[in-house]
Amino acid sequence: MIEVDIETTLGEFPLNAKFQSKSAVTALFGPSGAGKSSIINAIAGLIKPARGRIAIAGKTLYDSERGIDLPTHKRGVRAVFQESRLFPHLNVRQNLLYGNWFTGRKPSPSLHEVVKLLGLEHLLARRPRTLSGGERQRVAIGRALLANPLALLLDEPLASLDDARKQEILPYLEKLVAETKIPVLYVSHTKEEIDRLAKTVVRIDAGRVIGIEQR
């Protein structure tokens, strides 16, 4: 269950987003600059809304009325960004386990399962700069999965890739959704990705929710 009800201004630009979803995959769909990434950043705690409430799976991450504002690292939501943001000084295996080594807990799903799920077996010793764009995004998704996510926030994870690469990654995402029970919030401006993955589609335009569909 993802509950978002936030109001804020970003520079000149008002953002007013209210939606709820119980689906495994909820899409935020809308044109570039509509405010989708700002919603993701607010959920991740990277920006602070002026007022409102954000809760995921019963955990309140932000509530202006009750004075709750968990810091980013305590929110448990794991983000994958358009630019993979892999750590250049770490190899693939170290990147994958980054969110895990300082918690000391065993990741669930395990490294082995995630590596298999995303087809990363032959990449573990490589440095991010030697990977293709599609490989980088797969590692970024794996890194988020291995950090015991409460929810995954995928912010245009395929937008920087060409069509062939997108087709390469989409099956992995479908498999991920089918095999894990982690709620996913998926931001995209591409209809095909949404159609293949999402059960609930939240349409965003000019900083507002203009419609919610169930599929």
Partner: peptide
């Protein structure tokens, strides 16, 4: 800074 944000969303506090 975006790499630092990424680390924070993975659960690392400011010191880490």
């Amino acid at each position: 800074r975006r790499l630092e944000d990424a680390a924070r969303t993975l659960g690392a506090n400011r010191m880490i």
